[in-house]
Every structure is written in structure tokens, then in C-alpha cells.
């Protein structure tokens, strides 16, 4: 089995780097999938490969990497980011202090010319500027060199070339002003220093804004208890939760968080599970009940046995899933990375063409200066930072936002697709209804009494795992009916069950099963029909090949289902009910909640085919189910939504897991998806517009007509602004509120 390795990557400065790092990782033997997240500066690698090999490969490509192991990395990562943030600010300050006075005095015309004494002054400034380039801008130059060696180019390449050209050109003028015409004698030291100041400042601000996007994970990690009280050799002791072993006994006192998943073995309590299930009312739990890590014990003190620890707890799995989803890339993001990978080399070509165009077609004394300045400006303005950040940053915020609403999104593709659905298929039991059916009425024939029929039926059904079967067993228990011995039990998938009781064959199931076995149920038909119209599910009972009666089970509709389905209609979705239940019951439920299309009497194994047939009509289909018998259909659908109450982790089979068990979450998930995709598109549009206007402007296309030329410093500021705008726009998603009517 392949495993996922998470690495933190440093030295990635721009979108182009993502492609280089991914390439470096994929070239390692055993790697199946590599996903580099530029916004988070991490890589998730799947495959049979050691972390050391990956780190070596990444280092060879000119970047640095370290393995991330779990929740505890988060604080380390934060400290490292804080230090980096301060370093960037210091670098920005130093270059600003050198650049700003030069800029101001230069504008005021108070700087000397290039005569003998002036040149000495300029030489000093040139040396000061090279200190700026080394201290504040050194990382751009080393980054550019490293990626150039690997046949890649990125933001560093552009900045290094831009500022390097500015410095070199200025130094040439200082050394020998006679080389260029008098009009063109202008030093660009201040431009180099200020560009570096602005870009460093931009990165620092961007980092700060980025930190806010990972709050969802921090909040989830905050749910984990730090210590647990275990009982070892009869003595209670507090230990770190990492040290808790499987099957150890733990004590939980009132008000404490439960440390790991387990089963209560002594005592009882009410437990606040709202963080997992969204259910605000505390749940009563007693011996034999399951408790989940991260939930809060409200009242009593109890003992429980640890059943899932460390990475296996429900909470850890949720954290892992959100983390993986946040760093995953949707189709749109992969496309952008490809574009960014060829973008920078293309810009290099454009800059050379710009230079040649000025040299060949420019007129006047200043041609050389203009050629150099425009080339420099093209290099500076064309950074694809905004392009690289556009997708991952929005995905991070979107996935995190969804997690806050109890919606766990598996990956970026699911997030991108959810907003494009046009049909939603809903399973009935457990999705539209509570999924806790109970016996509502019974009809008996011949000499059977209700209690006797219930006794026989419950005895047979105790072997079945179907929710309807369970309701019959519970009804018998409620009436204190003792169960009989059953032989040769077998389940007929989607139809019913059969066995032998007291030497007589007994059969419980739907109409089709009775017809198949040639059992006459005409005496029960009228009653069955009337019950199905009330959205009840009648199950026929036959003993000794003769109809004995029917047991009718009703499953209450969730209070918010109707409202949620109305909201689905409001956003233009077609809603289809897909159930194994009989046509009349399904119709009755559909009528009650306002569903337009019903596909009933579908066997579990055929549900996926029904999904496929809707897809064949060209519809993009979302399937909502409770994740157990619906698993194939969930997998077949374009987006599978599993309604799970957290404990039964249906997380594995679906693209999106709805922890809150409400259909409203489906609409919320779709709304978040739409908002995120819209946000990504805005970001990409912004980045695209910025570059398509910025580059020609920088190249000086407006100069011959209107005399407008972009100052390289303005280009530096614009570049910093473009990334900052993307990050701020993505942060806007954090204010998103999907549900209006809760």
C-alpha cells in the first residue's frame, strides 16, 4: 500500500517553482502522485518512497524541504513563518532606507551629475546599492541561479535580471559617462533598491494574510485534548495523549475533552458532540456506547476503553482530510501551473524583443536608456506570482470555510465540480428521513395475533442488519417479547430475509419477493396500499408459504429536508429520489418534500447504474447517501456526498462528507463551491488582466503615441500589489455565510 508523505518546502518564490519542485519529486522512483501547494509551501507525495530521498531530490533542484509529521508541526511551522516574516521586513527596511532618499533627492534634482566629483558620490551609492542587492535581494539572485541551473525560470529570475540590469547599467555610466549620450546619463540605483524593498514588503504582507487562511486547521487541532487520564495498575495518572495505548482504560471527568475514541465501560454521561455532528443538544451515553475524541464530557464521570488512538481517531482523520484537501489542486489549478511554467521564459524573450525593438525603431538621444529601462520594467512587472497564488489560496480558504460548517471536502476537484452539478440524487432512508424507522402499524391474518407476528418477525430479523429489520427487533424488545430460535437464516439482497422457525419456513419481504415465491397476498393488498400512501413501508410476512400479515414501518422525514430541497430547487437543481423502497412509499415521501422525479425499487447494486444512466443524459450528477449501501453510487456520481454523523466514517467513499446529517449542508457545500470557483476565476482574471496590460505598457507601446512610460519602481509596486490583491480577495471568502435560513 502506498503512503502519503507531507513535506514543507522552502525557497519557492513563485508559480514557476511549483512545476520545478513537482518535477523533481516525480523523478524519484516510487512516487505515484506529487502535489505541491504554493500557498502553503508544502508538498504531499503519494507512493512507496522514503522522505529522505524526496528531500534529497528537492535539494538537488535548488530548494529545501523537511518532512512534516503531524499536528505538532503546526506550531513549529508558525514560528518559522514568523521568523521569515520578520526577516523579510528587515530586508525591506534596509533597501527602503537606501532607496527612498535617493528617490526623493533625485526627484528634487538635488543629486550631483556625473562630473569628476559627482562620480565619486555615485560610486559610493553604487556600492551601497550592491549591499542592498546582496543583503535584501540576495535570495532573488540565488533563487534565480538555482532554477536556471535546472532549466527553469521563476519570479526570482525576473527580479534578479531586472534589478541586476539596473545596477549594471548605472555602474557603467558612473565608470564612463561618455559611453552614453548626455541625455541618457541617469543612474537607476534607487530603482533597484526600491523595487527590492517593495517586493520584500509585498511578500511579508502576503505571508501575513496567508497565515489567516489556515485557521480552519488550527481550530480543528484545538479540539484535541493535550493530556489523558489513564488507569495503569489501578492508579490514575495524567499522560500526554500520544502515550495512550490501545485498549487502555481512561477516566473522563466533567467538563473535560475526550482524548481518544473508545467505548464506555463504566458510568454514564451526557456528551457535547456538536463539534463532530453539529447536533447542539448533548447526547446521553452509557456503558457500551462509543465516545469520540475532541467531544466534551458535560455531566458525569466515566471510564472508557481506548479503541482508536493517534492518527486513527475520527478527529485526526478529519484533520488529515481537510489538510490533504487544502493542498490538493483542482483541474483549473493544474492548468495554471503549466501556464506559469512557460510564462517566465516567454517573458525573458519578450524583454529581449522589447530591447531590440527600441534599438531598431527608437529615435533620439535617449534610445539606449529607454531600451534598457523598458526591458528592466518588463522583467519586473511580469511576475506570475498572482497567477501562482490564485488557485491554491482560494482552495485553502474554501475548504477551510466548508470544514467550519461541518462539510469535509476531499479534494479540489470535488470542490470545483460541486458548483457545476445540475442534478442531485437523494437516497431516502437516512438522507431525507431520519434513518431510524419504527414499526407504525400491523395487519394480521388468520389466527395470528399482533404480538405473535411480531415475535416471529423479530426473531427472524435479528440476524439482519437492515434498518427496517432493526426497527422490528426494537418494537419486539419494547413489548418485552422473547425471541425464538432461528435456523438457516439467509438474506435476499434488496428483497427480504428468510429462515426456519419451529420447523416452519418464514419469509419477510416486499411484494416482489412474495410474488416470486407464489405467495398469495391479495388479502393484504388494500391495507398495504393505504399505508404506502402515508409514506410507510409495508413488509409482508409469510409463514409456511402462506401470508400471515404485514408489518408497516415508518421513517420520519428530517425536519429540515423539505426546506433544503426547496433551496436546491431555488438554485436550479433537479432533485431525484433514488430508493430501494416501493414506488408508492417513495412517491409519498417525494410528495411530502417536493421532489420532482422518483426512481424506486432499485436494488443497492443497481443504484450506481441509475446514476450512470442520468450521467449518460449529459447531466452532472451529485449523489447524496448515507454512505454504506450507497457507496458504489457515491463513487459513480460526479460528486458523492456522504451524510455521516461522524462516527460511521463514510468519509472514505465520498468526495464530500456532511458531518451535520442535514440536507441543507448539500446546498451549503454547493454554495461554497460556487463561491470558491468564482473567487479563483476573479483571481485568475485579475492576474491575467494585470499581465496583459502591464507587459505592453512596460515595453513602452504607449510611448510613441502618448509619451507614457512605466517607471520600473511603479512596476515593482504593481507586482507586489497584484499578489496582495489575490490573497486579500481569497480572504474575502472567509466572510462567506452559506445558509441564510438557520
Amino acid at each position: 500500500m502506498s503512503t502519503a508523505t507531507r513535506l514543507s518546502i522552502s525557497g519557492m518564490s513563485c508559480a514557476g517553482c511549483v512545476a520545478s519542485v513537482e518535477q523533481a519529486i516525480v523523478s524519484v522512483d516510487g512516487v505515484l502522485i506529487a502535489n505541491v501547494n504554493f500557498a502553503e509551501h508544502t508538498a504531499t507525495v503519494e507512493g512507496e518512497v522514503s522522505a529522505e530521498k524526496l528531500v534529497d531530490a528537492i535539494r538537488a533542484a535548488g530548494y529545501d524541504a523537511a518532512q512534516l509529521t503531524g499536528a505538532e508541526d503546526e506550531s513549529e511551522k508558525e514560528a518559522a513563518e514568523m521568523a521569515h516574516y520578520r526577516r523579510l521586513l528587515k530586508k525591506a527596511a534596509f533597501s527602503g532606507i537606501v532607496g527612498a532618499p535617493l528617490f526623493i533627492f533625485g526627484m528634487a534634482g538635488m543629486l550631483p551629475g556625473f562630473d569628476a566629483s559627482g562620480r565619486l558620490f555615485w560610486l559610493g551609492i553604487g556600492l551601497l546599492t550592491i549591499m542592498v542587492l546582496v543583503y535584501s535581494g540576495g535570495h532573488f539572485f540565488t533563487g534565480a541561479w538555482k532554477s536556471a541551473k535546472n532549466h527553469n525560470a521563476n519570479m526570482d529570475t525576473l527580479i534578479a535580471l531586472g534589478t541586476g540590469t539596473a545596477w549594471l547599467y548605472s555602474m557603467v555610466i558612473v565608470a564612463n559617462p561618455a559611453l552614453v549620450p548626455a541625455m541618457a546619463q541617469h543612474a537607476y540605483f534607487e530603482a533597484a533598491a526600491i523595487i527590492i524593498a517593495l517586493i520584500n514588503l509585498g511578500s511579508a504582507l502576503e505571508m501575513r494574510a496567508r497565515g489567516k487562511t489556515s485557521e480552519a486547521i488550527k481550530r480543528l487541532i484545538g479540539l484535541q485534548a493535550k493530556t489523558a487520564r489513564v488507569i495503569r495498575d489501578g492508579v490514575e495518572q495524567d499522560i500526554a495523549i500520544e502515550e495512550v495505548g490501545l485498549d487502555e482504560t481512561l477516566r473522563v471527568r466533567p467538563g473535560e475533552r475526550i482524548a481518544v475514541d473508545g467505548i464506555i465501560i463504566d458510568g454514564h454521561s451526557s456528551i457535547d458532540e456538536s463539534m463532530i455532528s453539529g447536533e447542539p443538544i448533548p447526547v446521553q451515553k452509557a456503558v457500551g456506547d462509543e465516545v469520540i475524541a475532541g467531544t466534551i464530557n458535560k455531566m458525569g464521570s466515566f471510564l472508557f476503553q481506548a479503541k482508536r488512538i493517534g492518527k486513527d481517531t475520527v478527529l485526526s482523520q478529519i484533520i488529515e482530510m481537510v489538510r490533504t484537501a487544502q493542498s490538493s489542486k483542482p483541474a483549473i489549478g493544474r492548468l495554471v501551473d503549466k501556464v506559469a511554467g512557460v510564462f517566465v521564459p516567454s517573458v525573458l524573450i519578450v524583454s529581449v524583443l522589447t530591447f531590440l525593438a527600441w534599438i531598431n525603431f527608437g529615435t533620439g538621444d535617449q534610445v539606449t536608456t529607454l531600451a534598457i529601462v523598458t526591458t528592466m520594467t518588463v522583467l519586473i512587472i511580469a511576475c506570475p506570482c498572482a497567477l501562482g497564488l490564485a488557485t491554491p489560496i482560494s482552495i485553502m480558504v474554501g475548504v477551510g470555510k466548508a470544514a467550519e460548517f461541518g462539510i469535509l471536502i476531499r479534494n479540489g476537484d470535488a470542490l470545483q465540480l460541486a458548483g457545476k452539478l445540475d442534478t442531485v440524487i437523494l437516497d431516502k432512508t437516512g438522507t431525507i428521513t431520519e434513518g431510524r424507522p419504527s414499526v407504525a402499524s400491523m395487519v394480521v391474518l388468520d389466527n395470528w395475533s399482533e404480538d405473535q407476528l411480531l415475535q416471529w418477525s423479530a426473531s427472524l430479523e435479528q440476524g439482519s442488519e437492515h434498518p427496517l429489520a432493526e426497527s422490528i427487533v426494537i418494537a419486539a424488545k419494547d413489548k418485552n417479547i422473547s425471541l425464538l430460535k432461528v435456523a438457516q437464516f439467509s438474506a435476499i439482497a434488496g428483497h427480504g430475509v428468510e429462515a426456519i422457525i419451529e420447523d416452519k419456513p418464514i419469509l419477510i419481504g416486499n411484494r416482489k419477493l412474495m410474488h416470486d415465491r407464489n405467495i398469495d397476498i391479495s388479502a393484504l393488498e388494500d391495507a398495504a396500499h393505504a399505508l404506502t400512501l402515508q409514506a410507510q413501508t409495508p413488509m409482508f410476512v409469510a409463514v409456511d408459504d402462506k401470508a400471515a400479515g404485514l408489518i408497516s414501518v415508518a421513517d420520519a422525514i428530517k425536519p429540515d429536508s423539505m426546506d433544503a430541497i426547496q433551496r436546491m430547487h431555488d438554485i436550479g437543481l433537479k432533485v431525484v429520489l433514488l430508493t430501494g423502497d416501493n414506488q408508492e412509499t417513495a412517491n409519498a415521501v417525494a410528495r411530502q418534500v417536493g421532489i420532482d422525479e422518483v426512481i424506486a425499487e432499485v436494488l443497492p447494486q443497481d443504484k450506481a447504474d441509475k446514476v450512470a444512466s442520468l450521467q449518460a443524459r449529459g447531466e452532472r450528477v451529485g449523489m447524496v447517501g448515507d454512505g454504506i449501501n450507497d457507496a458504489p453510487a457515491l463513487a459513480r456520481a460526479d460528486v458523492g456526498f456522504a451524510i455521516g454523523s461522524g462516527t460511521d466514517v463514510a468519509i472514505e467513499s465520498a468526495d464530500i462528507t456532511l458531518m451535520r446529517g442535514s440536507l441543507n449542508s448539500v446546498v451549503d457545500a454547493i454554495a461554497i463551491s460556487k463561491a470558491t470557483v468564482r473567487n479563483i476565476k476573479q483571481n485568475l482574471f485579475g492576474a491575467f488582466i494585470y499581465n496583459s496590460f502591464g507587459i505592453p505598457l512596460a515595453a513602452g507601446v504607449l510611448y510613441p503615441l502618448m509619451g507614457i512610460l512605466l517607471n520600473p519602481m511603479i512596476a515593482g509596486a504593481a507586482m507586489a500589489m497584484s499578489s496582495l490583491t489575490v490573497v486579500s480577495n481569497a480572504n474575502r471568502l472567509r466572510l462567506f455565510k452559506p445558509t441564510e435560513n438557520k
Binding site: H151, I349, V352, L356, N360
Partner: peptide
């Protein structure tokens, strides 16, 4: 005139180098 010609030739050579380094040579490497 001569100077412009040299600059142009150098520019074209530079473009050719960029194309070779970032595309041709890179895909040769695999």
C-alpha cells in the same frame, strides 16, 4: 549601423539560447 547589427545579432542569439535552455534542452533531459 554596425553597432545596431551586432546588438540585433546578440539579441537573436540570446532568444535562441533562452528557447534552447528552457525548452529544447529541458525536454531532452526528459
Amino acid at each position: 549601423m554596425m553597432q545596431t547589427l551586432i546588438i540585433n545579432l546578440a539579441g537573436v542569439a540570446l532568444i535562441a539560447f533562452i528557447v534552447w535552455w528552457f525548452w529544447v534542452f529541458k525536454s531532452d533531459k526528459g
